[in-house]
């Protein structure tokens, strides 16, 4: 894994345990799946794994998640029938933090390829309303295939720039914005993301993320909650985006949340301590950043 100097200098300033962080990124990604309870129960998938002599164990923070610690081929009949979704264990966390209920009205703003959308539909038991949006035409196709495969029948797919959701003022109870980002968290499966990393790029992404979070927040009902997440490490794409929203929207409150069974770290700045950072060396996962924001009534309005 080639690490450019700019990346190293930046991240050494960010993390006191930079060497452990890089060592964890050098390890291959640990395989994991999520049982799709819209179609089968966990026992059915476990029975299949046993039959294939696969070493597996539960993911402590996701009751439907399983680590697969063997070379077993996961593209199987059961996979194509939609019994499980091949999903990184840390990407299961934003949907859990969103905590959707069967009657909720939910927006997944940057939804492709659909791992979180199908997880949310599963948590909603195919009830309520789930709008899954994706701006890219090509990625919408992948999203639709995964929705179909999962049997997620409460989903409506839209294709528009996420910023365009600003016009859907006060529409949703819960919004997930898993924002496009520099993807450093995925380095364990694609080391090219580190080669592509640059300060210039994260500033551009940060500007986009600020527009998206403003739009996502606007589409939220009063009392509703927004999960902002990225699979990357830079402060500009994470804490700075949250601070921007808190400054722009006086009634927005950053809330603490916990995911039992998961080791997390606080956000890096004083105003974002309640946000959560997930480091690869702590749980053998990708890097992730997750913040939960509540829209309250503006007392000064």
């Amino acid at each position: 894994m080639g690490i450019n100097k700019e990346f190293e200098q930046y991240h050494r300033r960010l993390f006191s345990d930079y060497d452990e962080f890089i060592e964890a990124l050098r390890k291959p990604a640990r395989k994991s799946i999520r049982v799709n309870t819209l179609k089968v129960d966990r026992e059915r998938v476990e029975e299949f794994l046993k039959k294939n002599n696969a070493a597996y164990s539960p993911i402590t923070w996701c009751q439907d998640g399983l680590w697969i610690d063997s070379d077993m081929e996961l593209d199987t009949v059961e996979h194509q029938l939609g019994y499980y979704y091949i999903q990184n264990s840390s990407s299961m966390i934003p949907s859990l933090a969103l905590d959707p209920y069967p009657g909720d009205y939910v927006l997944d703003m940057c939804a492709a390829p659909g791992s979180k959308t199908t997880h949310i539909a599963q948590l909603m038991e195919n009830k309520g309303v789930l709008v899954a949006n994706e701006a890219s035409f090509v990625r919408v196709r992948a999203l639709v295939i995964n929705i179909q495969k999962a049997g997620a029948s409460n989903v409506t797919v839209t294709r528009r720039d996420g910023v365009g959701f600003e016009r859907y003022n006060q529409r949703f109870d819960k919004v997930l914005l898993d924002a496009p980002c520099s993807d450093i968290g995925t380095a364990r499966k694609n080391s090219q993301v580190i080669a592509r990393w640059s300060i210039d790029r994260i500033h551009k992404l940060s500007n986009l993320q600020k527009k998206l979070i403003a739009s996502a927040y606007n589409s939220l009902n009063t009392g509703g909650s927004l999960i902002y997440s990225t699979c990357t490490t830079s402060r500009e794409e994470n804490e700075d985006v949250i601070e921007y929203l808190l400054k722009e929207k006086r009634e927005a409150i950053l809330e603490k949340f916990e995911i039992p069974g998961l080791k997390t770290r606080e956000g890096l700045t004083n105003k974002t301590r309640k946000a959560v950072r997930i480091m690869p060396q702590d749980n053998d996962t990708e890097s992730y950043f997750i913040a939960k924001i509540r829209k309250t009534v503006d007392q000064n309005a």
């Binding site: 309520g128 309303v129 179909q148 029948s153 989903v155 409506t156 797919v157 839209t158 859907y168």
Partner: peptide
């Protein structure tokens, strides 16, 4: 298509429910 959502949301949809 089969749709099990509570109501069809008022958004321009590319796809609704499952085929």
């Amino acid at each position: 298509f089969l749709y099990t959502g509570e109501r069809i949301p008022d958004v321009p949809a590319e796809w609704t429910g499952i085929h």
